[in-house]
Amino acid sequence: MENSQIVFFIFSALILVTAGLVAFRPRPVESAMWLILNFFLTAGLYVLLGSHFVAVIQVLVYAGAIMVLFVFVILLLNLDPRELGTDSSVSWGSLILFVAFLSFILLSLHVTTPELLEKMPPIKAGSTFGTVEALSKTLLTDYIFGFEMAGVILLLAIMGVGLLAYRKINNPRIVNGSERP
C-alpha cells in the first residue's frame, strides 16, 4: 500500500465520522463545528488528487463564507434547547429511505465508474493540471476579460449595498434602522 493511499483511507474514515457527528449531535452549533472539520478533510482529499486550487476554494468558500451563514442563521433562529428535544432518535421511515437512496447512488457509481474511467484522458506524471499555478496562468491570459469582469461585478455589488442600505449616521433619532419612540 502506498503512502498516499493510507492517507486517503484515514481522511475518508474521518470524513464519514465527522459527517455522522454533524447529523446526530443534538445541538446545532456543535453540528456546525463538526461540519467545518468535515470541510477541511474534504479539502485534504482534493489536495491528494492534485487539485490544489479547488482545495483552497473549498476552505475559503465553504469553511469561510458558507459556515458563517450557517452560524448566523442558527443565531437568528435563537432556538430554545428545550424545543430541540433531548432524544436524538431519528424516525425509522426516514432512515430507511436515506439508506435506500444512498445505496442506490453507491450502486450506480459502482456500475458506471469503470466505464467513465476508461474514457478519461490519461493523466501524465508531473502534470500541472489543477494546480494554482496552471489555473492562474489560464485565468490571467485566456480568460483575462472574464477575470476583470468579475472584479467589476464585486464593485457593483458593493455600490448596490451602499445604495440600498445607507442611512445617515448624524441623525440621532434613527437607531438600528428604526426611529426611537
Binding site: 472574464g146 469582469m149 468579475a150 461585478i153 457593483l156 455589488a157 455600490m159 448596490g160 445604495l163 440600498l164
Partner: peptide, 23 residues
C-alpha cells in the same frame, strides 16, 4: 460562455439595485 454569463449578471445586479432606489 463565460463573458455571456458575466455580462448578464452585471446587467441584472445593477438593475436590482436600481429598482429599490426609493428605499
Amino acid at each position: 460562455l463565460s463573458t455571456l454569463f458575466l455580462g448578464l449578471e452585471t446587467l441584472s445586479i445593477g438593475v436590482y439595485c436600481l429598482c429599490g432606489f426609493y428605499r
